[in-house]
Amino acid sequence: MAEINSSVEGIRTALAEALGRLRKANAEYFEMLEKGLAASPLPIANQAKEFSSFMQRNVTATFDLGDKLIQAKDMQDALKLQADFFQDQMRALTDQARTVGESAMKAAGGLFTPKS
């Protein structure tokens, strides 16, 4: 039994290390993306930055779920974690869609205002 527990802990450790490397690569990717968007002369750069921020939050939430799943005690615990994650992501998606919609409406409103 001790052999099984030590192999489970070894797997958890390996998964946690791999997830840490993925987090680091992800952070570097978004840092590079933000630098590129900051230097962009395109008029939609601000909307792209906002979208990038949403993506970053969603990916971070997914990594956080991975951390929690690695530590799950059993299948029931894992399923609860996934259900909670799904609900949180649906709320975040709703908020993000509202924000993007408001931003699009503002941008579209600017197109139709008379220029004097």
Rank of each mutant, 00 (worst) to 15 (best):
Q87I: 11
T62H: 07
L42T: 14
A72Q: 05
Q96C: 10
R57F: 08
Q76S: 12
L79G: 02
P41G: 05
Q96N: 11
Q56A: 13
A78T: 00
Q47I: 11
L69Y: 04
Q96W: 06
L65H: 07
Q89A: 08
L42I: 15
K80E: 04
L79N: 10
L69G: 01
L42R: 12
A78S: 10
K73T: 09
T60P: 00
P41Q: 02
A97P: 08
A72S: 09
N46D: 15
P41A: 10
A78D: 02
K80V: 05
N58H: 10
I70P: 01
I44F: 08
R57T: 12
A48G: 02
A48D: 01
F51Q: 07
L69N: 00
P43L: 10
D74F: 00
R57N: 12
L79Y: 09
L79W: 00
Q47S: 10
Q87N: 11
Q96Y: 09
V59R: 00
L93N: 11
N58Y: 04
M75C: 07
M75E: 08
L65G: 10
K68T: 05
I70H: 00
Q71M: 12
V59L: 04
P41R: 04
Q96G: 14
K80Y: 03
M75F: 09
L79I: 03
T60Q: 13
K80H: 11
F63H: 08
N46P: 10
D67R: 02
D77I: 05
P43D: 09
R91P: 04
Q96R: 14
K73I: 09
D88P: 01
E50F: 01
M90C: 12
D64Q: 14
F63I: 08
Q71L: 15
K68P: 01
L42F: 15
Q89F: 05
D64T: 15
R98W: 13
R98N: 15
I44R: 07
K49H: 03
T60G: 01
E50Q: 15
V59D: 01
L79R: 11
Q47T: 06
D77C: 00
D88K: 14
Q82M: 09
A92C: 07
T94N: 12
